[in-house]
Design a protein around this nucleic acid. Structure first.
Lengths: 187, 187, 187, 187
DNA sequence: TATGAATGAGTCTTCATTCAT
DNA sequence: CATGAATGAAGACTCATTCAT
């Protein structure tokens, strides 16, 4: 029986991610239940509040995202991989405005449960950044949080203006002229 | 009597800007009426639809913003002035998330009335950018729209992460090494 | 000054008749003010309540209608004139559903002011009927009120089904076979 | 659970018929909810729009009415039964002004769902009329739609003037003197 | 007196949440 | 556990009526 429940919960999370991504956080709980093929009561059994559902969806999103970032730290060319990651981020952000905005909130809300997840996520980002910096591809005066901020901002900008802004940001991040730039040389 | 009405309308716009900026576009019309100290009927008399109210608030915001940008094109040092403007933008965007997001939409919705206002705004931005580029302070391969995109993105990022991201963007925008950078040298 | 007022009042009555006839009694007072080219305050100065406006419009309608009916009692051929009147009634009722329905209420509401008007109207109808009856064209067991009822009903029916129903009613009203019909011979 | 819902829906229909009949279609949805002893949300769950509620009430009314008419076509004396039906119609129309008016619209609105119901209703009326005509009790130059029109009109008239008008109409419908009347002898 | 801005009760409708089945 | 019917607070919008100008 609990297998059913777990399967339902998972399905709900996936469907909700889909629906929220498409219609924003304003999507009705009923719409999600319908899309998941369950009764609305089931949604509220698993997530007693719409906010909790949103939180859970975001947590799942964060989890998958963290996983991806972590996997990148095993890349051969950290510099190239870093910038490829940036571009990939924008692509995926297209269809997930709401979630990307939620991702932006990763810096703020410090309530219990998702704390560790956020911490892990930040560590992964930092690791990614540090490796690229060590490879001399990335300016040394920023950290993972800064990069996330810039990417979220770039995604926001891309919503309306296309992705040209990202290239400026990337140029600002590069360290091609590390030696000549006045920026600090220590992390 | 029309003086009263105009005063009320103006007051409503200001209050609505305040309220929307604080609580987002989801703020209830009633809340705005309350904040303005008028009955709800008055709000709807001036703005027959919530959307029209939002539009009007945004139009006012855009107008003031355009004015500011235009005033900058008379600055002595276009380069310095440009970067100062960027920083000022972020400061003012703090208290106006919703409006800044609406500003982002300036690129999209092309419905009748606000069209000219947007066009004027874009021209002002372009002028600002071109002058900074002529002064050799700004990379030549971008235009006013790109800058707006980046600033909106930076503001979005700053909501959660502070303003450090802006510096990266600014570094990406600079043209200290115009000659050495691989970017195109023509506008 | 009072000339202005009187002219305004008259104009309002006419316009209101028009508007109520077209959009029903649900038409907004503001719409009437607009159509009359006056401020809404003026409407309420002349008719302190929407209901009073409706009443006044109806009273005017009734007055004109009574006039017409009275003029008919001077006709040469009372029978022919009577049936012509019936047909004319339907034609004019087309564009004035709401008023015709209001006319139906002439039988009911017995509040002060319009009492005499209704009485006068009923007398005119009775006179019209009696003359047709004396001419042997109309069955003798009905009175003006009955005829009004039938015409109002026919008008209602005609809204949806066309005017064929009227002919049946007319056949029922005729007295071609007065002698043979079992109906009572006294009024 | 669906049993409950069905019961509620049925109850709502009945109550709504009552309320609309008494206060007209302008009666507030809230009033109906109150009268039915349910929350307003329940009304909107069953009938997502006030218009849909009105439609449903009318459809139910039409259904019952059609049933009654159909049952009459099995009567022994079609002529007597026909006129009895006319009189009964008026009686029932008393308490259902709004619905009777809606019935009048049966001739007009031709939107999807209620189409078949209206068709069935009209057939039943035609059958009723034809049988009375075959029995020599009804003039042959009219059909079911005409009769409905006349009855609706008579009901409207009766609202204000009582039922005497109906007798005139009935006299117009009779065929006692079919041979002598100038009306056409073919259907 | 005319005006039209202001008012707010009332209307339809949505949606998160609860609970009987 | 799942279901979906019931709930009612809240939101956008309308309109008769009042009143300052």
């Amino acid at each position: 029986m609990r297998a059913d429940a777990r399967r339902n919960r998972q399905r709900l999370l996936e469907v909700a991610e889909e629906v929220f991504a498409e219609h924003g956080a304003g999507a009705s709980t009923e719409a999600i239940a319908r899309a998941a093929g369950v009764g609305i009561g089931t949604v509220f059994r698993h997530f007693p509040t719409k906010e909790e559902l949103l939180r859970a969806v975001f947590a799942e999103h964060l989890r998958k995202f963290t996983e991806e970032v972590e996997s990148l730290t095993r890349a051969a060319d950290p510099g190239a991989e870093f910038f490829a990651f940036c571009r990939r981020f924008l692509d995926s952000a297209q269809r997930k405005k709401a979630l990307t905005e939620a991702l932006a909130d990763a810096g703020i809300e410090v309530d219990g449960e998702s704390r560790p997840a956020k911490e892990q996520f930040r560590q992964a980002m930092d690791e990614l950044v540090v490796r690229a910096q060590r490879a001399g591809a990335l300016r040394p005066d920023i950290d993972g949080t800064d990069v996330l901020a810039l990417l979220v901002g770039a995604a926001k900008a891309a919503e309306q203006f296309g992705k040209r802004g990202l290239e400026v940001i990337i140029d600002g991040l590069r360290c091609d002229e590390c030696g000549t730039r006045p920026g600090p040389s220590a992390s």
